[in-house]
Design a protein around this nucleic acid. Structure first.
Lengths: 227, 227
DNA sequence: GGACACATGTAACGGGTTACATGATTTC
DNA sequence: GAAATCATGTAACCCGTTACATGTGTCC
């Protein structure tokens, strides 16, 4: 068992910091915590709990619900200190896995139905997540959220979540409409239209912005470094 | 070596489908292809190339640049067929790793400087990626992009990329301003403000939308299934 | 009292990462 | 002709996943 803590470790630690949980609850309640910003399999949570416990960052207390034993974990002072220390290290950048984009690139090899169904799936996923966001919103407004005392922070996170999903949803929508307007998936006659879309994108080309000093080479974008 | 192809395999295959590349070029040029939507380490690309080649989905031809040997890979008919077949399988959903969100949640354990630097980093990353997006835009407008004949498709992808980054950038900006306005990171007196932000989020609460039929239980959001 | 979902895990595989290695070219 | 960088990989660890296991409460 490695000694290094990963972001996943800190995610679990952060969740335990809110209040004590059993491992099962931790794994389940990730939905309301980091499932969407740091998705991991349940078994990964179980392993992290074992690890954090063996390192003394959380402590388990055996409880019984009827005849069934369960271990409820709380954060230790050492665990809190570890979290605080972590806040001084550099963040790993935003990263996404978006398979639909790869499929879009190779879409001309397939059919209109295929790319349509891919984009529809993207939109459905986004709308489903938005529904979850709506549920969270309501919980806070009703004052029954587990982290009700942290609204002032959580509001900022939910804001991000909602904004991002609206962006994905809207993009899927307009892209579906665009493809609908095509007769087929070949490049024939679609060149100028594509350039027009590109031209209208709200972003400056380097040509337009060569007034400023050149970008120093060490400003290179970091790849995700999540270990 | 497992026989199953992963999304990473198909990403490499899709890139080789554009035109032949040496392995090194493939690993480098991911920047212009899937680096941002399917980020993987270079060594993973090398391994995939070996695998795809041994499965006959791509073929390598030895070339020499001066004294240095290199293998240039092209896609085979079998590889094209595999890509086409893949388009009929369900997409794996959008997923993100966004460590900054975890840090935001535990921000009250640390200092204002710490959360500020986290959010600034998020904004810098987004702006750096936007600059890259601008460069891609210019390439297409100048007509010198490698996939110039695919503008009509790529435009849709670049649109997504730009939209998403503007969303991230704007969120980081307004969140930085919000936190700037605080005296400290404690909940004291920030409760009502948080609720106000939540209230204004552009998403329907389930309460508001109970007119429609209940959501069938099998509409559950899938977790990323990228294998 | 059988079925089913809840609660709590363990085992094993493999994909992704980090770290290292090595010759060839270019730079100064 | 030394140093830096390019080009091309290999090795090994470990995180994350999928699949399985097993007892316990609950529903009808």
């Amino acid at each position: 068992m490695s000694k290094r803590l990963t972001t996943t470790s800190y995610a679990v630690l952060a969740q335990v910091a809110v209040h004590p949980w059993s491992t099962y609850e931790l794994a389940q309640q990730r939905v309301r915590y980091f499932r969407y910003v740091w998705p991991r399999a349940e078994s990964a949570i179980y392993r992290e709990v074992t690890r954090l416990s063996s390192m003394g960052l959380i402590t388990g207390r055996k409880e019984y619900v009827g005849k069934r034993a369960r271990t409820v974990y709380s954060i230790t002072d050492q665990g809190l200190a570890a979290l605080r220390q972590w806040l001084d290290t550099p963040v790993s950048p935003f990263a996404m896995d978006f398979e639909a984009m790869i499929r879009l690139f190779v879409a001309p090899l397939g059919t209109k139905e295929q790319i349509n169904s891919t984009l529809t799936q993207v939109q459905n996923d986004a709308q489903e997540m938005l529904r979850f966001g709506g549920a969270v919103k309501q919980e806070f407004l009703e004052g029954i959220a587990v982290t009700q005392d942290q609204v002032y922070i959580r509001a900022l996170a939910v804001d991000f979540f909602i904004s991002l999903l609206h962006t994905v949803d809207a993009w899927a929508e307009r892209t579906l409409r665009e493809i609908e307007s095509w007769d087929d998936l070949t490049p024939d006659g679609k060149n100028e239209r594509g350039l027009e879309i590109i031209r209208q994108l709200p972003v400056a080309t380097p040509e337009e912005s060569v007034k400023g000093p050149p970008i120093p080479p060490d400003t290179q974008l970091r790849l995700r470094r999540s270990r």
